[in-house]
């Protein structure tokens, strides 16, 4: 990993420690609290995170240039994540069978599959998963508001 990324990780860890520590300090004490209180251990964890972040910063400052590895394809990862987010947002509206079939088709297409086999795969997978999860296991997946479900 590059030195810049190590510096970024160190700064991020310190920022997280600060934010988390501030929230921990603001946790109200209850009458049932022990001597440590609900915020005591989180404050120690914030301290540990802050120390580790400072250590990373220090080490990255002392270290020379390092070779960066080939990073994964962020655009494709973000695209896949987008498809998953759309699935979560859409499932209450269109229902499980359509949403899971659409997700299967979209992911397969996004990953490079083409042609009618994508549609056949999506329909087959939707039927298999709907049959397995809903009919066989009896799990109440959303039926979809569009179709009168919840």
């Amino acid at each position: 990993m590059s030195r810049a990324a190590d510096l970024g990780l160190g700064l991020g860890a310190i920022a997280l420690a600060g934010g988390y520590g501030a929230m921990a300090a603001a946790i109200p004490k209850s009458l049932l609290s022990d001597a440590v209180g609900p915020g005591g251990v989180p404050l120690v964890i914030a301290g540990l995170m802050g120390l580790a972040g400072t250590g990373l910063l220090l080490r990255a400052t002392l270290a020379g240039r390092t070779d960066a590895r080939e990073p994964p394809d962020h655009v494709r990862a973000a695209g896949l994540l987008g498809l998953l987010v759309v699935y979560v947002a859409a499932i209450p509206h269109v229902g499980y069978p359509i949403a899971i079939g659409a997700l299967a088709a979209a992911v397969a297409w996004f990953a490079g599959a083409r042609g009618w086999s994508v549609a056949a795969f999506a329909v087959g997978l939707a039927l298999l998963f709907w049959g397995g999860f809903v009919l066989l296991l009896g799990i109440p997946f959303p039926a979809g508001r569009l179709f009168g479900g919840y």
Partner: peptide
């Protein structure tokens, strides 16, 4: 690979909801 990835992801989101 595209079909395997799609099937695995569908399994993950369905399993977690279950």
């Amino acid at each position: 690979k595209p079909y395997l990835l799609a099937a695995i992801l569908c399994l993950i989101v369905s399993g977690v909801f279950a």
